[in-house]
Amino acid sequence: MTLISPACRDALQNWLDGRRALAGAADHTITAYSRDVAGFLAFMAEHHGGGQGLAALERITVSDMRAWMARERGEGLSSRSLARKLSAVKSFYRWLAEREGFEPTAVLSTRAPRFQRKLPRPLAEPAARDVIDTMGMQSETPWVAARDVAVVTLLYGCGLRISEALGLTGADAPLPQVLRILGKGGKERLVPVLPAARDAVENYTRLCPFKAEPTAPLFLGVRGGALLPRAIQGAMAQARMQLGLPSSATPHALRHSFATHLLAAGGDLRAIQELLGHASLSTTQAYTGVETAQLIEVYNRAHPRA
Rank of each mutant, 00 (worst) to 15 (best):
V290A: 13
A286G: 14
G50K: 07
R270P: 09
W68G: 03
A112C: 02
V131Q: 00
L54M: 06
S63Q: 15
M44R: 11
L281S: 05
L123R: 10
S248D: 10
A7K: 11
G234Q: 13
G234V: 06
G76Q: 03
G186I: 03
L243G: 02
I162R: 03
L57T: 04
R19G: 14
M69C: 13
A200T: 12
D27E: 14
A197Y: 07
G51S: 14
G170E: 12
R19N: 12
R80A: 14
R35N: 06
A265P: 05
A249M: 09
C8N: 14
A265W: 03
H28L: 08
T29S: 09
L166W: 04
W95L: 00
I132V: 14
I4V: 15
F258G: 07
A302Y: 08
V152Y: 04
E213D: 14
L218R: 06
T169D: 14
Y204I: 09
H47M: 10
S34I: 00
A25N: 13
H47D: 12
L123E: 11
E297Q: 15
A38D: 09
N203E: 15
I132P: 00
S247N: 03
E291D: 14
P209Y: 05
G183C: 07
R66S: 15
V144K: 12
L175C: 11
Q242D: 11
R20C: 11
M241A: 14
Q294L: 09
A45S: 15
P229N: 10
V149C: 11
E46S: 15
G101L: 00
G185T: 05
P229L: 06
A165E: 05
A286K: 00
F40E: 07
G157W: 02
Q116P: 00
P251S: 01
E58P: 01
R198S: 10
M44Q: 13
I30Y: 00
A67K: 08
P6T: 06
G221H: 06
A197P: 04
M135T: 06
R198M: 08
H303S: 09
G221S: 11
P246D: 03
T29W: 03
L220F: 03
D148Y: 06
R80C: 05
A259W: 08
L96K: 03
R255S: 10
A7I: 01
R129M: 11
V193Y: 04
G225T: 07
A259F: 03
M1L: 13
S79D: 15
V152R: 05
A145V: 10
L82R: 07
A32P: 04
A67S: 15
L179Y: 02
Y156G: 05
R305Y: 02
S91L: 10
R223Q: 12
P174K: 14
D17P: 02
R66G: 15
I296G: 00
L155T: 09
Q238F: 01
G289L: 04
V62E: 15
A127W: 05
L16A: 09
I296W: 05
V144N: 09
H48V: 04
E291Q: 11
